[in-house]
Nucleic acid binder design. Structure first.
Lengths: 196, 196, 196, 196
DNA sequence: CACTAATCGAGACGGTACGTCTAGTCTTTAA
DNA sequence: TTAAAGACTAGACGTACCGTCTCGATTAGTG
């Protein structure tokens, strides 16, 4: 395909990078509440309309900033389902047991749940781990290691939901023992007899 | 002890009721984003300082409004653990599968997590169901119906966390089947052989 | 006990004295702009309704405070009209060439010009010197020292008006030379030949 | 001179005009006490920050409104000093013997006396007449009509001070006779023998 | 090479809401 | 009985951002 070759001055890629950098810095230094379009414009040296040309509001900008430095799906390397799942859960919890974890929750709560941008954010930041877990379970079932006798969607929510529950509610800490505890209970539900 | 008998004019209980009423109405009609102190003052016919005398900001006011009409702990009537827990989960999900549920999640995410007010809100609105579930499980264990072989805190988070997970992330709906699915999987973890 | 702790109904005078003391202190320490009923109530330990029972607003309170510590009419001792008038003008200017002078001007400008309280304030604080000057001039005319060939009211305004003019406008300073200059010019208008 | 050519969106001249118009209308209709930034914003259809971008507070806004419709210096046409000065004084008194006169006094009293804005207001609204009078006197002295034997600054204050004195204190009315009386007495001080 | 279209920075605009302060009124309790 | 303490309705204060809009400057293509 031929590039469209638009007439005017092309968008400045550097400007977007500076915007995301500034947004990210503000998030880590001052928190979600200080992430205003005004502050990002001032810090990045970019005009406000330039920001609004790419993101509709501060929430989308926050999501973009949180996505920009995101390693993505956490692959849990391991031979058995237990070790793979436990590895993934530990990575996940380690990644979220920081200020960034709570910022993600706040951003998600503040965002318009119907927006396309929000959906992309959910899929990449929140649900990617859940999808990776689904893959692990399906592979284990395929090689006969487990039997999926219950609703898989519910099971996935019971594995990954508690992480965000503790993040949002804050009644108990996110730590390695929590990761292992979830895996242990979850495996009960897939009749992983051989693993007991 | 004699009542404290404070010196000046006592707080007007009616004013507080009107404030909470107005806040509740705005929440249900316009949503969390429209719940501003200004709007509540205008709607309730109360001065802004009167609101600030009782609540530090709009978040606390939202929490107070959400708590004010709250039925509290959801008792799950039933003879067996399964029926009791399933009853409670159905009630819980029914109560949260509305606009109010998402508002609770948004409010919690926006609130200062260290504030005393936030902690009270968490205990009354979020964790009361979890505590009720803990009671159900401990009673069932006491009468020998189940064996608590795993970490009870983790198990409770796996039962109640998924509700808020779906509420916050919105990837799947909150319905009766979800309630039953959670109970079914949770009971696997307490070795409820007799119930199978 | 050093503070005389009265039993029963406290004396009315004490409360008023405390109010005026507090108002005066606020005027000298923080200026006219900070003299609010709220601040006086807080500082004097008196309830706001008690203040409103005696003064209609902060302006009246300011006037009362400014009158309370007022030495009143400035008598200009001296044998001749020139020396008597010059003595009075020097005293007047010395009394007003302070922060208090400007506060009096501000208070007068802010007050309701029709109020009875304002009229009393004008008579006691502003016009008393003018009346003293009138007496000096009439006495000098009676003993043949001068001839009042022009409108006495206008002449009096030309003697005392400039003081408040400089006070309000602030374009030049209030000093001894100013007092003497006014007297010198004023005496031209009364044909004080013998004094030239 | 090259115009500076500033970068951003230029200030909306129309908005400033509307602000001053609204401020002026409020001053004449409701008085100085009702001239709040809030009311001006509501009446002019302009945002509050736009007002604060140009004026620091309601006092400055009042001064700007009073200056905006100001005819400026009152030239007293006439062949002799007496007729010229009497003409100017009559114009001056006519201009100030209205509600606007008292508003000017109140505004000046309420304003920060050190502010640059206040100084400009004083020079344009209060002292311009005094400067015009100084010019008249110096011209008359130059053509030998009078002899300036006393301090000119004091004399000017004795001519223009009484106007503001009566305005502020309100003990007597501002009228034509007052203007003439001031001129008559003032001319005594400049040895205007030929004019007697 | 001039023209032209698009984007950039800057920043003022009309607004909304903030949280604070003060006004003046009203209601209890204490002296 | 009166004054204190203090909560009330009311509303202006000055600030922070919002999201929109107009500018002049900059930067490519296109003609």
């Amino acid at each position: 395909m031929s590039p469209p070759k638009r007439r005017g001055r092309p968008p400045n890629q550097l400007a977007q990078a500076r915007i995301l950098k500034a947004a990210h810095d503000i998030l880590t230094e001052d928190g979600f509440g200080r992430l205003t379009v005004e502050a990002v414009a001032a810090r990045s040296g970019v005009g406000k309309p330039t920001i609004y040309r790419h993101w509709a509001n501060a929430s989308e900008l926050a999501m973009a900033a949180l996505m920009s430095g995101d390693p993505g799906i956490f692959a849990g390397g391991g031979t058995s389902l237990r070790s793979a799942l436990a590895g993934q859960m530990r990575s996940l919890i380690q990644a979220f047991a920081t200020t960034r974890g709570r910022q993600i929750a706040m951003t998600l709560a503040a965002a318009d749940p119907e927006s396309e941008f929000t959906k992309a954010f959910r899929n990449q930041v929140i649900l990617s781990s859940r999808e990776a877990g689904r893959a692990l379970l399906l592979e284990a079932a395929a090689r006969g290691e487990i039997t999926l006798q219950h609703d898989l969607e519910v099971l996935l929510d019971m594995i990954y939901g508690p992480v965000f529950y503790r993040l949002l509610v804050g009644h108990r800490s996110l730590d390695t023992g929590f990761a292992d505890g979830i895996v242990a209970i979850a495996l009960e539900a897939v009749a992983a007899r051989a693993d007991r």
